[in-house]
């Protein structure tokens, strides 16, 4: 990879970073960052709408005064953590890159929205290679290959089923998250307080 031209390489790999970063600019220009196509006017195409749809941002657009043309950040409206994250997902998928990297991209997105986005990504996959970094097991359990890292080393590799069968680090992590989900779902059988 060190022999490839950097600009070309970066056009092939699109990343959603852990900390979503958006500019104080319109939502459209933020999503189209790094896209060779014009942001507005003739020849814009439906790419932006498609990306917003895929990242589950479309539903939120109605809340914004000018839809995709709304200015965000210091000079405009403030987005929630989840909206920011979904906008950066839209940005990464817009050019349909051969490689897509999602680095803890769903930390501020609720589980059902995350599921919808993952489903959309899967449908639009084609030959795309996806690298998903996640803390939540639910984000990655359908992956073809899961690599478990511990202090910088790959300690386990395999599919969800294979790793569970190994009863190692991954299985422990999975058990722990099951417990956590179980706790959050818990309802008082009597329905009242106390």
């Amino acid at each position: 990879m060190r022999d490839l031209p950097l600009e070309w390489l970066r056009a092939q790999i699109r990343c959603v970073l852990q900390e979503p970063f958006l500019f104080s600019d319109t939502l459209a220009r933020n999503i189209a960052l790094g896209s060779p196509f014009p942001v507005s006017g003739e020849g814009r195409g439906g790419g932006l709408e498609w990306a917003a749809e895929l990242s589950q941002l479309s539903a939120d657009l109605d809340q914004f005064p000018h839809g995709l043309e709304t200015v965000i950040g210091e000079r405009g409206i403030t987005l929630s953590g989840g909206q920011k994250q979904r906008a950066t997902i839209a940005r990464a998928v817009l050019t349909r890159p051969p490689v897509l990297v999602l680095d803890d991209a769903f930390s501020n997105v609720d589980t059902s929205t995350e599921e919808a986005i993952l489903k959309g990504l899967q449908a639009a996959k084609g030959n795309q290679t996806r690298l998903v970094i996640a803390h939540r097991v639910s984000t990655i359990k359908d992956s073809e290959l899961i690599v478990v890292l511990e202090t910088g080393r790959a300690v386990e590799q395999g599919t969800h089923g294979q790793l569970l069968a190994r009863r190692g680090v991954y299985a422990r992590l999975y058990g722990h998250q099951r417990l956590e989900d179980d706790l959050l779902q818990w309802r008082n059988p009597d329905g009242g307080s106390r």
């Binding site: 970066r10 056009a11 790999i13 699109r14 970073l17 970063f21 500019f23 104080s24 960052l33 790094g34």
Partner: peptide
């Protein structure tokens, strides 16, 4: 000043997206 501040804090995003 605001622009420079933003461009510096967003430098990874700018470079990753060839922007």
């Amino acid at each position: 000043n605001g622009f420079i501040q933003e461009a510096v804090s967003g430098v990874t995003t700018i470079q990753l997206f060839n922007a």
